[in-house]
Design a protein around this nucleic acid. Structure first.
Lengths: 339, 339
DNA sequence: CCGGTTTCAGTAACCGGTTACATTATTTCA
DNA sequence: TGAAATAATGTAACCGGTTACTGAAACCGG
């Protein structure tokens, strides 16, 4: 009948220990010394009553949630496991909690964001999980944000952690050209509005240009960074297109898997007939048959770095506005090399 | 100087709209009708002031957080992506948020759990991420819990969502025996204290027994459900052991990848020389070369189901104490079949 | 026209912590 | 020895919502 919840509060503990609530609070938060005698009684009372502080009450009083948010576009791609893992490690180390949500930038704008200043102390925003004006809006309100796999909007200083895409892609495609003599290289692009995908496409085009290979729009198909989509598109390409090709560069490893599968099913040998290279270096890429030549993206490090940036932001430390993490070409078998 | 945060509160909105805070609250929560006139003024005031309700204050007043917790052992294995994805979908659909944390059952017990009754309305506990007495303790306090990949402790009615392990394993191993004539089947087990691993081992042993094949302790190695560990152990086995074998069944697909890799490196052909089969049917398993014969575990469904169970628990609905989701054998190429 | 509902809105007590300020006891040191 | 500094604790006002209770106006049937 009474509204009082069954949970034991700080006042119960205070009564049990024979001290004031302030003292309990100070003891718990170590915010001031308490005498040994009192400390012991408090310890006992807490034990006795099985007291657990009420998070919401604490958040309300302190105006901090000790929670940080992570906004992703989806969670089912294997790419996200190390990303979340890296973030989680830092968050846990800092004694914070991690709130995870998925959201698409294009979704109904008027609905309330699952995470934001109302329930987290700061957030990490992945790629195009949030519209630019929403990001700016939050930032303008002083809400700490770190962007990953997405650059800072012009004119704003929102820290961002990205990886080097273009140059590595260019060098890897050049590897296909110079070391394996490939000239007709199919490019499998990702989502149009995702920066990683755009940079990788630029790197691909750059490599062609560097070697005076004319670009052929026929040689670009769209895999959406999704294995199944890439597989389907590749099958369709093999059936419909008369365009011949001798290599495939995919903007992501996940697609590369689908591509290789489609190729093998169609009777091509990888890498003898067709060289294949990807981007990401997923945990599984080394174990594929043939092992996938790719670009290593330090995904867990991206997560870790972004989380650290965010905590620097929260503690008022200086924060690098832009962090560009290096990537590294990983030569394996799928391009044609013997390793 | 003042402690007052810069954020706008419900009282500001009330003043702006010329009504009381109660009315604002009622309007926002749709907990009672307000006249159209008032509704419009409130809407305007909220817009004008850019008001966002303070989550902690709301939680404190309602004694609900609208957050559910997910406790995992780690996050880096690809297995977790669909699991989390499934949970997240339901949680989002219910208008809740998802708090994710990792924890090991064996870690220092006295440290406060990252999630629990203090900051979530309920939680989903994966396998051995939490000690049995901690689970029971929380449950005794009336905290809603759903277990996944772990059965209910004896004598308690904590809902659990698990998958059928033993029978499917048995049948798959029998497939290796009867359809491919394998008799010396290596088993790669997972963590000793994980139930899935235990059941799969029982299924393996059952299959041997059904076909009068003597069990050989030499033919069991430990892969810990980790690709790299399985790889290393397999390499070691190939170097050290004189024991011959003609098939490998691994308790999980992740290990199977490492196993195949070790076998291929050692000059074996899969499946011509050695049949390989796994368990899980990870997204990538179909794309491996050769495609992996395995048992399909409905991992996303496990997540979805567990989340639904938890919400039933939260809303006082009847909850199945035990849900055992069916698994299905998936025959591909790695066992030796032509598909 | 009148008592009884129904509808809409306001007042203020609460949720369970934190912390500024006040108070008392204990040292410290000239 | 006594004034000042220090240490340990208590009191009560917050934090920003929700909601039980109350009151006023509108509505309704007879």
């Amino acid at each position: 009948m009474t509204r009082r919840s069954s949970s034991v509060t700080i006042r119960d503990v205070a009564r049990e220990a024979g001290v004031s609530v302030a003292t309990i609070s100070r003891y718990i938060n170590q915010s001031a010394r308490v005498s040994d005698d009192v400390a012991e009684r408090i310890e006992l009372a807490i034990e006795e009553l099985n007291y657990v502080p009420h998070a919401a009450a604490r958040h309300l009083a302190t105006q901090r949630t000790r929670v940080i948010g992570l906004l992703l576009t989806n969670m089912h791609n294997d790419f996200f496991a190390p990303l979340v893992s890296g973030i989680e490690a830092v968050v846990q180390h800092q004694g914070y909690n991690l709130l995870v949500a998925t959201h698409r930038a294009d979704s109904h704008l008027d609905i309330q964001l699952p995470i934001g200043s109302h329930n987290t102390d700061g957030m990490i925003v992945f790629a195009d999980s949030l519209r630019e004006d929403d990001i700016i809006g939050l930032h303008r309100n002083g809400f700490p944000i770190v962007l990953i796999h997405r650059s800072t909007p012009d004119g704003y200083e929102i820290p961002s952690v990205t990886i080097e895409n273009k140059d590595a892609t260019c060098r890897l495609v050049e590897h296909l050209i110079t070391d394996h003599g490939r000239k007709r290289i199919l490019f499998v692009r990702g989502p149009a509005n995702q920066e990683d995908s755009q940079w990788r496409e630029l790197g691909y085009l750059q490599a062609l240009e560097n070697h005076d290979i004319p670009r052929d729009p026929q040689l670009i198909i769209c895999g959406e960074f999704e294995r199944e989509v890439a597989y389907r598109e590749m099958v369709k390409f093999l059936e419909d297109s008369q365009t011949d090709f001798d290599a495939v560069f995919t903007g992501d490893d996940d697609s590369a898997i689908g591509i290789v599968n489609a190729l093998v099913e169609a009777g091509y040998r990888v890498p003898e007939d067709i060289s294949v290279a990807g981007f990401d270096d997923l945990r599984l890429s080394a174990f594929l048959t043939p092992p996938l030549t790719t670009v290593n993206a330090p995904t867990e490090l991206v997560g870790r770095t972004a989380a650290e940036q965010l905590f620097d932001l929260l503690t008022g430390k200086d924060v690098d506005p832009i962090i560009l993490l290096p990537t590294e070409i990983v030569i394996r078998r799928s391009c044609g090399c013997f390793v």
